[in-house]
Structure formats: structure tokens, C-alpha cells
Amino acid sequence: MFTLPKLPYDYAALEPTLSADTLHTHHDKHHKTYVEKTNELSQKAGLDGRPLEEVVREASRKGEKPLFNNAAQAWNHAFFWHCMTPKSAEPSGALKAAIERAFGSVDAFKDAFVEEGFSHFGSGWVWLVTGSEGLKVVSTHDADDTLVKDGLFPLLVCDLWEHAYYLDYKNDRKSFLKAWLDKVANFAFAEKQLAAADGQAEGFRYPSPGANDDGDRREPPGEGEQRPRA
């Protein structure tokens, strides 16, 4: 069975950008429910014990919408926690160079990310991805994610569902996105993902079913990562 991964930092570590109350509600209630439903539905679908990435793709391929929604949301949230850090710093190195090639500047990238997320109608996710055309910003609706998007590899994501920000920002999604990028976005993690996309490192992977969680809260140097799929 899949377990709910613990946050890689304390609940209050992202304040004032995101409150401990928001993280408790988001992680302990919303994410926990997605994991529990995934365990229930994956067992019924005969996918119990398979990696979550495989469960998401199989559910999509077979059109099993309830399983896909819950499994994809479980994966998206686990990835999202790693996309934040209390030690946020501006993009550097290979990531900065790739951003500048694709968008012209880091500021232009941030503007594109905020605009894509703010303009997205309803619930979903806004992503920085890489692929054959280089880096770009895309958004997905509801539970949809990059695992089922051929040719796209995720570097960074921000949650656009209201439960991600409403306690702290009410309906002001744009202010949330701006603060998120400037204060807590984990560009070091995004750079590791970029290296994984190039086959130079291990990329993010959801903890295996039944994996032990030691409960440590720390900046992840690469825990739970995988090589990108071909």
C-alpha cells in the first residue's frame, strides 16, 4: 500500500508565504485522502503493489477515471511538496541558462508562469516542463499531470486548487503565485529534475508501496527520485 509521504520540512517552515494551517489542511487532509482512495481503487483494479507512476498511466490508458484522479493527485502533491523549500534561491547554473534560452530572462519566465496559473480556469496545476522544444510553461486541469503527457518532463509545479492557497490568500491566486515563485519555489530541485531529464541524475519518484518512512523532515537531496522515462 502507498503511504502518505511526510513533508520535507516543518509545517511552519514556509511561513509567511504559506501558513502551517494551510500545510496541515492540505497535506494531512487532502493529500491523505487521495492516497487512501488510491490504495482502495488500485487494489480493486488489480494494480496493488505497482509503482504509483504505473498506476497513474494504467488508469489513464484504461479510462478508469476515479483511480486516475486519485492516483494522479497523490503523485502531483508528493511532487509539489518537493517543489517548495524554506531556503529558496533564484535559478542558477544549467537551469538559469535553460530558462534564459526559453523565456529570455528569469523575470520573463516568472511572468509567464504567473500568467498561465492565474488564467487557468478552475482547479489544476501549473508546470515548468522540459522536452524536445526546451523549457515551457503549461497548465493541466484537475488531476491531469505530466506522467501521461508524452515528451514532457516536469521540473516544477504549483498547485492551483483553492485548498492550496485559500486560507492565506482567499481568492487572490495571482498574489499567491507571485509569492510562491519569489519566496518558496525550489529551483534547486528543478535543476536536479533538469539533469534527470538529460539522463545525468535520478528524477523524482513516489515512494514505493510499503516503503518505510523514517519521519525525518529535511531538504531532500534526491530522496524518492527516478530516471525519466524514455
Rank of each mutant, 00 (worst) to 15 (best):
D21T: 12
R173A: 12
K6T: 10
V184K: 07
F109N: 05
E53S: 02
G215T: 08
G210W: 10
D198M: 15
S60G: 11
W81S: 13
P228C: 01
K96R: 09
V126D: 01
F189S: 02
E225M: 13
L95W: 03
E40A: 06
K32D: 02
P66E: 12
L128F: 04
L7Y: 00
K149V: 02
L194M: 02
V184R: 02
G131C: 04
L181I: 09
L147G: 00
A98L: 02
G104K: 03
E191H: 03
G199N: 05
E133R: 12
D48V: 03
A188S: 11
G222V: 06
V55T: 01
V148D: 05
F153V: 01
Y34D: 14
T140G: 08
V126G: 08
P91H: 10
N69R: 06
Y34E: 14
G134I: 10
L177Q: 13
Q43I: 00
D198I: 07
P66L: 02
V56Q: 10
D10Q: 00
V157F: 04
A98T: 01
H30N: 10
P86A: 04
D21F: 14
F121I: 13
S175I: 10
D159Y: 01
H141C: 09
K96S: 10
F204S: 04
H31M: 01
K32R: 12
N186I: 06
A188I: 12
A195I: 04
D150E: 15
G203P: 01
A12C: 11
K178C: 09
K29G: 13
Q193D: 07
G122N: 14
K44H: 14
A195F: 05
E116A: 15
E54R: 03
E223Y: 10
T146F: 07
V137S: 05
P154D: 11
P209W: 10
E36M: 06
A89Y: 00
W127R: 11
G210M: 07
G46A: 11
K32C: 04
H141G: 08
Y34T: 05
N171R: 11
E115L: 13
Y166K: 15
R218T: 12
L52H: 04
N171Y: 13
A72N: 08
Y9T: 01
S88P: 06
R61T: 07
K110W: 05
D150K: 15
A89I: 03
S208R: 13
E15H: 09
T17K: 09
R217Y: 03
H31Y: 02
R173N: 12
K174I: 06
E133S: 10
S208M: 11
P5L: 00
I99G: 05
D142A: 14
L156S: 08
K44V: 12
A89W: 06
F80M: 05
L14P: 04
S208F: 14
H82M: 03
H30V: 06
K136L: 09
V129W: 07
K149M: 12
D214H: 07
S19N: 12
T140E: 14
D144G: 03
